[in-house]
Write a protein that binds this DNA or RNA. Sequence first.
DNA 1: TTTT
DNA 2: TTTT
Lengths: 163, 163, 163, 163
Amino acid sequence: MARGINKVILVGNLGNDPETKYTQGGMAVTKASLATTSVRKDREGNTQERTEWHRVTFFGKLGEIAAEYLRKGSQVYVEGSIRYDKYTGQDGVEKYTTDIIADEMQMLGGRAEGGAPKREFGGGGESRQSRPAQPQGGAPRREAAPAKSNDFGTDFADDDIPF
Amino acid sequence: MARGINKVILVGNLGNDPETKYTQGGMAVTKASLATTSVRKDREGNTQERTEWHRVTFFGKLGEIAAEYLRKGSQVYVEGSIRYDKYTGQDGVEKYTTDIIADEMQMLGGRAEGGAPKREFGGGGESRQSRPAQPQGGAPRREAAPAKSNDFGTDFADDDIPF
Amino acid sequence: MARGINKVILVGNLGNDPETKYTQGGMAVTKASLATTSVRKDREGNTQERTEWHRVTFFGKLGEIAAEYLRKGSQVYVEGSIRYDKYTGQDGVEKYTTDIIADEMQMLGGRAEGGAPKREFGGGGESRQSRPAQPQGGAPRREAAPAKSNDFGTDFADDDIPF
Amino acid sequence: MARGINKVILVGNLGNDPETKYTQGGMAVTKASLATTSVRKDREGNTQERTEWHRVTFFGKLGEIAAEYLRKGSQVYVEGSIRYDKYTGQDGVEKYTTDIIADEMQMLGGRAEGGAPKREFGGGGESRQSRPAQPQGGAPRREAAPAKSNDFGTDFADDDIPF
DNA sequence: TTTT
DNA sequence: TTTT
C-alpha cells in the first residue's frame, strides 16, 4: 500500500554513457545522468538558461535495456520516483544524494554521440536476433525494447480481457 | 515495446458507486465516473466552471480493490491511459467511447457519501485488522490497498536491492 | 479554483500535418492527430499491438507554434487535459468527441515526413527572423519554440527570484 | 524554449506547518516538507516501508496560498519540477540540496493536525463567504484557492475561445 | 557531462 | 493517419 504519489517524468539527454553494475543476486543496476534545461526571460529581457542534472538509476531488466540501448547524448523519456539517501563519507561528513529510480524508459528520436543515424534504429527483427549477447561499447543499434514487462500494468496474464 | 506514452493522471470525486462485472475468466472489471472541475475567468470577469466526467475502468485486482473501497463521492487519484473505442449501436449508428484504463489508484482523504468519517485515516493498525474479510455493501471501511502489486515497478521479486 | 486534476501526458507521432483555423478574435486553433502505440503479449505469446489516435488541440500562441513546427510524422511531447464534448450532428444524432487540450508541447528528435534531417533543426536565430509569416507546406525548419510563455509557471514577471 | 521535461507529481502529507519568507521584491517564498510513503514486500514476505521527505517550495501567489491554507498534516497534490542546488556551508564544505519547485498545488480531503474537520468540503458556499480576510494562525479554514492564475494555461485572456 |  |  502506497501512501502518497511520488512520480517523476523526465525528457532529456544523457550526459554520459550509462554505467552498469550487478548485485550479488545478479540484478543489473544502471546509472546515467540526464539533463533537462529550462529557459526564462529575466527582468532585463535576457534569456536565463538553467540545466538540472538528474541521476537516474535503472534496476533489473530495465537496467539491462538501458545499458544496451542508451548512450551519451541519447534523448530519453524516463518515468520514475525520487529517492533521497544519506550516508557518511570517508571524511566522516554526512552526504545527501537524490536519485531518480526509473520504472519506465523510452528512447526518443535523435541519436547517440558517434552513433548511427536514426533510421538504423528500428531495424527489422533480424537485427534483434543477431544482436550480441552482451552490450558492448559503441553506439546503440536499435530502438529500445519495452521498459516494462507489461504495458497494461495490472494482471493481464489473464488473457480474457474484453478488448 | 511501447511506441509512445499515453498517460493520464486524474484527481477527482466519483459520481456514482463503482459497478463491477466479471469476465468469463473471472477477472473483475469495475467502472465508475470521475469528475474533474476547472474554473477560469472570462473576459467579463465572470467565473466559468466546467466539469469533465471521465469514465474510468479498473481491471483485475485493481478492479476488486476499487469495488471494495470506492463509493459515490470518494476522492481518488487515478493514473492510467486513454482508450478510444468504436462500436455499432443497435440502431446501426457508429458510436465512439473514451475510457480511462486505470493502472494505479489511490484513495484520498474525504469520505464517500453516506460513509463513515475517515477517522481511521492514519490511525493505528488495529482498525485495519478488524476489517471484514469480504467486501459488503455500504461505505468503504479502510484505506485503499495498493493499486499495483509492486510499487517499485521492475523485477523486485529479486530481493537483493541495494537499499 | 480547480477541483481536481485532469492531466494528460502524451509522447507520439503526428498522423497528419496540423490544421489551423483562427477565431474571430484572431486566436489560432491548431489540431492534429497523435498516435501512441502499446504492445502486450497475449496468452498464446503473440504480440498484440494497439494504437490510440488522440485528437490534440493547441490554442493561441501554442497553436501558432504547433502550426509552424509540427508536421505529419513529427515526434512530440504534449501535456494537457482531456475535454469531452457533445453536439448534435446534421443528421439529428448526438455525437461525442474527446479532445486533448494541449498546454505544453515540445518537439522531440526525429523528423517530419519528407523533412530535413534533425540537425537542420535548431538553426541560428537568424532563421527565426526570416521565417515566413504564415506556415506553409514542407518540413519544419527549426526546433520548437517554447510551449509556454513562462517555463516557471507562477508570477515570475517579478524578477527577484532568489536563484 | 525548454529543452527537456522536468516534471514532478506528488501526493502526500505535510510534515510541518509551511514557513514563509519574502524576497526584497515582496514575493512570498513558502517551504514545507511533504512525505510520500511506498511499501513493498521483501523476499521473506515482510512489509518494507519507506518514506521520502520532499522539500517543496512555493513561489509568489502560490506561496501565499500555501501559507494560508496548508498546515502540518495537510494532504496535498503538488506538481512542479526538481531543482538541484549546491552551496558552500559555513564549515567550508560543499552541500547539495534538492527542492521541488511547485507550480501547481491543490488541497485534498483530510484535515490538518489540530484543524477543524473538512466538513465544508463540498458543502455550501456560505462558509466560503465568512472566511477571514487575512490568514491567521491555526488551522486552514477553507478549500484551497487556485494554484494557478489560469487553469487553461495559454493565452486565454483572449476570451473568444470556441467553447 | 547532454542537447539546441 | 504516425512511428518502429
